[in-house]
């Protein structure tokens, strides 16, 4: 699976906008910024469809992966966007890293811990922020949330590093 996918998830209270463009996206940030609520809504839609009252707009199927039989479920999924919450204890296992490496799914992982076995870009670490008061959404009653880059390294201001760390092209983990 390649390319960029926009995801819109909402119910009568909250509305999320996300874009994923790499196979691994990480969502971090403060407590109570709505990360678990996002996973909860996607899981409800995944389980009950339109009967859940949740709306989900995306060009591909979105699923939530939990510790319950994750290996079997993951092996049956293709070209999906898979969401995983931080409480799933398989996240740091070697087995999961190997399953991700051999998968054509995209993964959106909510975690603050580092995932040293998985190759992901610093550009794909996001937080969630409330944008209800922005001019785009001001007239609506729901709470609007969108992702933002936690580490924005593309700054226009002068940047004079004292140390530059690089890796060679044969390091074995292409990002």
């Amino acid at each position: 699976m390649i390319g960029k996918y926009s995801i819109e998830v909402y119910n009568n209270r909250v509305h999320y906008f996300l874009t994923v463009q790499r196979n691994i996206t990480v969502i971090q940030g403060n407590s109570a910024s709505g990360k678990t609520e996002l996973i909860r809504l996607i899981n409800l839609y995944d389980t009950y469809g339109v009967s859940s009252g949740v709306s989900l707009k995306c060009g591909v199927i979105c699923r939530v992966l939990t510790s319950n039989d994750w290996k079997t479920i993951l092996s049956s999924l293709y070209s999906c966007i898979i969401f995983i919450d931080e409480n799933e204890d398989f996240l740091k296992t070697k087995e999961f890293a190997e399953a991700v490496r051999g998968s054509d799914n995209y993964f959106v992982i909510v975690t603050r811990d580092d995932l040293s076995q998985l190759p992901y870009s610093v550009d794909e670490i996001y937080g969630l922020r409330n944008v209800t008061d922005s001019s785009k959404h001001k007239e609506y009653k729901r709470v609007y949330n969108e992702t933002y880059k936690l580490y924005n390294l593309r700054t226009n201001s002068h940047f004079d590093p004292s140390l530059v760390v690089t890796e060679d092209t044969n390091s074995g983990v292409p990002i």
Binding site: R13, V14, S31, T36
Partner: peptide
């Protein structure tokens, strides 16, 4: 303020 009246179980994981 975001979700309306909720049970205690839907507090954030942090709190």
């Amino acid at each position: 303020p975001f979700l309306g009246p909720i049970p205690t179980e839907r507090l954030s994981g942090g709190v």
